[in-house]
Design a binder for these strands. Structure first.
Lengths: 151, 151
DNA sequence: ATAATTGCAAAATATTTGCCTACTT
DNA sequence: AAGTAGGCAAATATTTTGCAATTAT
């Protein structure tokens, strides 16, 4: 469980799992998908959990260091995070509506390992983001454009 | 040639290919690999080409809009760009020394297309970044760690 | 007591924008 | 003359940091 992992990470260096750190951890893991520091901070305030912005940023950095949380990408609106318990996956991003779709392909993982071997590079992790248009937005466009959907 | 593409892009909207815009364009395309706005700006100053930071940012945005230049990623040190004439490729990033290695795999491209088909997603582009350790840094570590290289 | 932690506000960093001047046509 | 472009400095947004007060062991 994530709390124990984090506690161990902290105790190994003589640090403490404080109320704030734990609250931030819980909140991060309560997000189904992706989150950014500011939203996490605001959500916490709404729920009455008190932690400062500084603590949110500081704790997210700790969570990254210990691997429980990873940076997905940096955007105009700040860094996007996700928690990393659960299986690895990649992302498709719809550039129309912004939806982020997770997917996983064993062949893709295997192929990347093979490419790393060929290039003599020790791959540790990867971020793949396929950008394009989701079905929903494509359908919307077809309706507007009047394209027929069956032959 | 990139200058004509950019000129056309600008003239189509009644804008001009000015000395500064051209200088920034040339500088961007003179970078073999990746660059960031600040370095580009500093390099330009060194070479005596005069353009303000604001113009660099403004022009890079224009170059992105017209597709001559693309954002590779956002890092702690700002946005990394590359010019997009020449072939598509992906990146391996060494987390030890920061080196960025370009690679291309036809199979990988094909496989991604297939995945998109399966997921009913219209993929337009992608960014793949494999993070890990380059050969050089691995060798350095082995020397330090005293690990033998043949059994 | 000691050392870690917090929250705040200030600082740092990257980027955008407002405004006024200077070109270009 | 009209509109575009440039440069500067101020504004913005995100994230980090210094510091004094607080907390846990």
């Amino acid at each position: 469980m994530q709390q124990n992992i984090f506690r161990k990470f902290l105790e190994d260096r003589g640090w403490r799992l404080t109320k704030q750190r734990n609250a931030i951890l819980q909140k991060a893991f309560s997000c189904k998908g992706h989150f950014d520091p500011e939203s996490l901070y605001m959500e916490m305030r709404k729920k009455g959990m008190k932690a400062s912005r500084a603590s949110v940023y500081r704790t997210l950095n700790l969570l990254c260091e210990c691997g429980l949380v990873g940076k997905v990408s940096k955007t105009e609106h700040g860094t996007i995070y996700e928690h990393t318990l659960g299986s690895h996956h990649d992302h498709m991003v719809c550039t129309d509506c912004g939806e982020i779709i997770e997917f996983y392909s064993e062949s893709l993982e295997k192929l990347q390992e093979e490419i790393c071997r060929e290039m003599d590079f020790e791959g540790k992790s990867h971020i793949l983001e396929i950008r394009g248009h989701c079905r929903h937005c494509r359908m919307k466009k077809n309706v507007l454009g009047g394209e027929s959907s069956n032959g």
